[in-house]
Deep mutational scan, measured.
Amino acid sequence: MISNAKIARINELAAKAKAGVITEEEKAEQQKLRQEYLK
C-alpha cells in the first residue's frame, strides 16, 4: 500500500505540472509514483 506521504507528493507534483513549473526530473518522479499508486 502506498503511504500518505507519497500520495501527498503525487498531489504536489500534479499542482506543479498544472502551474507549468515542473522539471523533467519531477515529471519522471511523478510517473514513477503514479505507477506505484496504480499497483
Rank of each mutant, 00 (worst) to 15 (best):
Y37T: 05
L38K: 08
I2G: 04
K39R: 05
K32T: 12
Q31H: 13
E12I: 06
R34N: 12
M1W: 11
Q35G: 06
A19C: 11
I10L: 15
Q35T: 11
V21A: 06
K32D: 13
E26C: 02
A8N: 13
I10G: 03
N4S: 14
I7Q: 10
I2V: 07
T23N: 05
E25Q: 07
K18G: 05
I7C: 11
K27D: 04
E26D: 02
Q30K: 03
Y37H: 04
L33R: 01
K6T: 13
I10K: 02
G20E: 03
I10Y: 15
T23W: 01
S3A: 12
K16P: 01
A28C: 09
M1E: 08
E36D: 10
L13D: 00
E24V: 13
A28M: 13
A17L: 10
I22F: 00
E26L: 01
I10P: 01
A8R: 13
E29W: 01
Q35P: 02
E29T: 02
I2R: 04
I22D: 02
I7N: 04
N11Q: 12
A17G: 04
E24D: 10
Q31K: 14
G20K: 04
Q31A: 12
S3Q: 11
A5D: 13
S3G: 13
A19E: 05
N11H: 14
A19Y: 07
L38F: 10
Q35L: 14
E36L: 06
L33A: 03
E25W: 05
K18P: 00
A15L: 11
R34C: 15
L33S: 02
L38P: 06
L38H: 11
A19Q: 08
A5R: 08
I22K: 00
A5L: 08
A19V: 06
N4W: 14
A15V: 07
K6A: 11
Q35H: 11
K32E: 14
I10V: 05
K18L: 10
N11D: 07
L13N: 00
I7Y: 07
E36V: 04
K16V: 02
K27S: 04
A15Q: 13
L33D: 01
N4L: 14
G20Y: 03
R9H: 02
E29D: 02
V21E: 05
Q35I: 07
V21T: 14
R9M: 03
K27T: 06
A28D: 12
E29G: 00
A8I: 10
E26N: 00
E26T: 01
K32Y: 11
K18I: 09
A8K: 14
K27V: 10
E29F: 02
A17V: 05
I10M: 15
A8S: 07
T23P: 00
E36I: 05
E36F: 05
R34L: 15
K18C: 00
K32N: 09
N11L: 15
I22S: 02
A17D: 15
Q31P: 00
Q31D: 13
E29C: 02
E26G: 00
K16F: 02
M1N: 08
E36H: 04
I10E: 03
K39L: 15
I2F: 14
V21R: 07
M1L: 11
L38Q: 09
A5E: 13
R9K: 09
K39M: 15
T23D: 03
K32W: 10
A28N: 09
K6Y: 09
T23F: 00
N11T: 10
E24C: 07
V21L: 12
E24M: 07
I22R: 02
E29V: 03
K27P: 00
E29H: 01
Y37N: 06
N11G: 04
N11R: 13
K18H: 08
I7G: 04
L33G: 01
E26W: 00
E26A: 00
I22C: 00
E36M: 05
K27A: 08
E29A: 01
E12A: 08
E24H: 09
K18A: 10
A5I: 08
N4V: 09
K27W: 08
Q30N: 04
N4K: 14
N4I: 13
L33T: 01
I2W: 12
Y37V: 10
R9G: 01
E12M: 05
L13S: 01
R34H: 15
E26Q: 02
K16L: 09
V21K: 13
R9E: 02
I7M: 07
E12H: 06
A5S: 10
L38C: 15
K16G: 01
Q31V: 08
Q31S: 09
E25K: 11
K39Q: 15
S3W: 09
I2A: 09
I2Y: 07
A5H: 09
E36N: 04
K39D: 15
K18W: 06
R9L: 03
T23Y: 00
A5W: 11
A8Q: 15
L38E: 15
K18N: 07
K6F: 12
Q35D: 15
L33I: 04
L13V: 00
I2L: 12
Q30H: 15
A17R: 07
Q31M: 10
G20W: 01
Y37R: 03
Q31Y: 11
K16D: 00
R34W: 15
Q30G: 05
A28H: 11
T23E: 02
K6I: 15
T23S: 12
L33K: 01
E25D: 09
I22N: 01
R34V: 15
R34D: 07
E12F: 06
I22H: 00
M1Q: 12
E36A: 04
E12Y: 09
I7S: 07
E29Y: 02
A14H: 08
A14N: 13
E29S: 01
E24N: 12
T23H: 02
I7K: 13
E24T: 06
A17T: 06
A19F: 07
K32V: 14
K16W: 02
L33N: 01
E12Q: 11
A28S: 09
K32Q: 10
V21P: 03
A15M: 07
E25I: 08
R34A: 12
L33E: 00
S3L: 13
A17E: 10
A15S: 06
Q31L: 12
A28T: 10
R34T: 15
R9D: 01
E25A: 13
R9C: 00
R34K: 12
E36S: 04
I10H: 04
Q31E: 15
Q30L: 15
N4R: 11
E24A: 11
K27M: 11
A14I: 08
N11V: 10
A5C: 06
L33C: 03
I2P: 10
Q31T: 11
L38T: 08
M1S: 10
A28E: 09
E26V: 01
G20P: 00
E36R: 03
V21C: 09
A14P: 01
R34Q: 14
K6C: 08
A15I: 05
I22Y: 01
A28G: 07
L13P: 02
A14G: 04
S3E: 09
E12V: 06
A8T: 10
A28R: 14
N4Y: 06
K6G: 05
K27L: 09
A14S: 10
I10S: 03
K18D: 13
K39G: 13
A17Q: 10
A19W: 08
Q30W: 13
Q35A: 10
I2D: 08
T23V: 01
A19M: 06
N11C: 15
E24S: 05
Q30M: 12
G20N: 04
Q35M: 10
R9N: 01
Q31F: 09
K6M: 15
Q30I: 14
K39A: 15
L33F: 03
G20A: 03
A8V: 12
K18S: 10
K16A: 05
K27Y: 10
A5M: 08
I10N: 02
K32F: 11
K39Y: 15
E12D: 05
A5Y: 09
K18M: 09
R34E: 15
R9I: 03
A8F: 07
Y37S: 06
A17Y: 07
A28Q: 14
L38M: 11
I7L: 12
Q35W: 09
V21Y: 05
L38N: 13
A5P: 10
R34I: 15
G20F: 03
K32L: 14
N11I: 09
K16Q: 02
K27F: 05
N11S: 08
G20M: 04
I2E: 09
S3K: 07
I10W: 15
L38S: 10
Q30E: 08
